[in-house]
Simulated scan of single mutants.
Amino acid sequence: MLSILQAAGWPIIPLVLCSIVGLALIVERFLSLRPSRVIPPRLVDEVITVTRGGLPNADTIEKLADNSVLGQLLAEGLSAASADPRISEEKLRMAFEVGGRKAVHDMERYLNAIGTIASAAPLLGLLGTLIGMIEIFGASGGANGVGADPTALAHGISIALYNTAFGLIVAIPALICHRHFRTRIDGYVMDMEEAAERMLQHLVRLPGKRNGG
């Protein structure tokens, strides 16, 4: 592998950097977008059970926000209800919407960077190949050089194509992971919308029990 990288020349350096950054971002997103970190299975039921006797205090709400992305969303609604026990359903819904936008922003972190790597890597590979072929033809001395040693020319072209191949090797996994993360986030968003609606209706039905913790 080291000999291939050396043969491909300096244009492959940006691709190597893209591969390192892309791998780090993909691993980070895989860890951050686990169901246990985003939307724990029974979190909504537990919060509803706890709040049947009144809203929790600020420390409990803060711990809920640190629990997961869904916990952060629910904490936004609970904080709004605690701040104003007589809050209207419309304002409470707006609080959940604000929390939802923050949650989506957190889940989509680094996705643009992964998508950029997936789009730019093939272009960087093609650029490296073109630069390599220009250097090969320049060193061969033009048409006379090409006719004099076709074997060396073919070998040089194969080395130049390493850049294109490496660019595709970087781009394909990045594109697959980007689409995978996007699909997973869309599913999480639907689940969180349902959870927020359940929590909203629960809080609306308990106006007399909003004691502010």
Rank of each mutant, 00 (worst) to 15 (best):
A143T: 11
I185Q: 10
N211W: 00
R101L: 14
S3R: 13
S3C: 06
Q201V: 15
E28C: 03
V146H: 01
I131K: 02
V69F: 10
G147L: 13
I159P: 00
M199T: 12
M199V: 02
L15W: 08
G128D: 11
A81T: 02
E89C: 02
I117H: 10
A165T: 04
A75P: 13
T51K: 07
H178P: 00
A80L: 03
A65M: 12
A83I: 00
R101W: 01
I114T: 01
Y188P: 09
K91H: 10
S82M: 00
A81C: 06
M133D: 03
E90L: 03
L74E: 12
G100Q: 08
E135T: 06
I176K: 00
I159R: 11
M107Y: 10
G145S: 08
G115E: 14
L124W: 06
R101S: 09
P122K: 11
P207V: 14
S79K: 03
L55C: 12
G77Q: 04
P85A: 03
L74M: 13
P150W: 09
A80Q: 08
L5Y: 14
Q201L: 15
A148E: 11
L25Q: 04
G77T: 03
A143R: 10
I117A: 09
G9I: 09
A83N: 07
P85Y: 04
I48E: 14
I20Y: 03
Y110N: 12
I12T: 05
G147D: 08
Y110V: 06
I172W: 08
R34D: 00
V189E: 09
D191P: 00
E46T: 04
A65T: 14
Q6G: 02
T164Y: 07
K102I: 01
A83D: 07
G156E: 08
P11E: 08
K91G: 05
R184N: 13
I134P: 11
G145Q: 14
V69G: 07
L126C: 08
G208Y: 01
I134F: 13
L43Y: 06
L78T: 07
G208W: 05
R109G: 02
I172C: 00
I185S: 07
S140T: 07
E197W: 04
D59K: 14
Q6E: 08
G100M: 15
R52V: 11
D149I: 11
G167K: 09
A118E: 09
I157N: 02
A103D: 11
A65E: 14
E135R: 06
A75Q: 08
G9C: 05
I61F: 05
R101N: 04
W10L: 15
G167M: 10
R182E: 15
D45H: 12
F166N: 08
I20Q: 01
L15T: 10
F166C: 09
T60L: 13
A103L: 01
R210A: 01
L111Q: 07
G213F: 04
M133N: 06
P207T: 06
N57Y: 03
E76T: 01
V170M: 02
